[in-house]
Design a protein around this nucleic acid. Structure first.
Lengths: 148, 148
DNA sequence: CACTTAATCTATAAGTTTTATAGATTAGAT
DNA sequence: ATCTAATCTATAAAACTTATAGATTAAGTG
């Protein structure tokens, strides 16, 4: 399960992806539209900015905007910034590798083989899914007809 | 990331899978072999028993054993018992479905489309991976030679 | 029946992470 | 100067994780 924070982040990024190239968006506007506690959202957006995903402008006419194109913002990038490791365990993490303190011998850990497979399946989806895909999903939705 | 508890559970189950059909195994034996705090492990095994994965026997000659064959114990089954939902969000969970309190309209949530895809990729791996696969990985390991 | 073994149950708690809230401060625009 | 909106600092309730301790129950053994 991803954290609420990560879900908030993705929803906020969806809004910013929609307005990509159309100038800055206010925190308060995003917060209202997506029902995110404003102060909490502030911290999230700041985090995304400090990690190169967003760009901000203070003062009147200011706000937040994407620094890179929606197609460039993968889920894995966002999740790593907000939630940390994507891998099911540190011992198979590519960006947050760490030894498992309960593991006797990492080389021969049979669990690790399986965890690696799981990690790769995850990354296949998360590396290739971007904000652009959320937008596509948004537009693809057609209200079900009563015909059936 | 899975919890330590889940990792402990999988490691304990690996031991029990090895001894499948060979009588009960003591909690203390598993705890020592896998370096798991004994009291903590007790709770984990009990949980697995109450959910039909394990079977226990009190008193002398007692211990824990698998109730079903290693090939029948999938990762998804274990993880749902120990860590709960496997899905990245409750709104796309098959076993723990719940509405997201911050979501205006679930039907049109664009994030949900992507989360569903992610969930399915996860399940493809976790439903088909069982304790038997851990054992296979265990036996498949061959120490690297110095030749290279 | 008394004794030993080993799982089971109940209670407690330290530690960490998550999910926020409040208020002061800084940078930019007019 | 003044208004605006992001930024920084501090705080904290709530939930979850990771345990530990001790009493109890069930089963087998002599």
């Amino acid at each position: 399960m991803i954290s609420k924070k990560a879900k908030y982040a993705l929803k906020a990024l969806k809004v910013l992806a929609e307005k990509y190239g159309k100038g800055p968006v206010l925190i308060s506007e995003i917060a209202e539209r997506e029902r995110i506690p404003k102060k909490f959202l502030e911290a999230i957006l700041l985090d995304l900015r400090n990690n190169g995903v967003l760009q901000s402008q203070k003062g009147k006419g200011g706000g937040y905007m994407l620094r890179i194109a929606p197609e460039e913002v993968s889920f894995s990038k966002v999740l790593r910034i907000i939630d940390g490791p994507i891998a099911p365990a540190l011992c198979v993490s590519m960006f947050f590798y760490g030894r498992c303190d309960d593991c006797k011998d990492e080389e021969t850990c049979s669990l690790r083989t399986v965890l690696t497979k799981w990690r790769d399946a995850n990354l296949t989806v998360l590396d290739t899914t971007t904000l652009a895909d959320i937008l596509k999903a948004e537009n693809a939705y057609v209200a079900p007809s009563d015909a059936a």
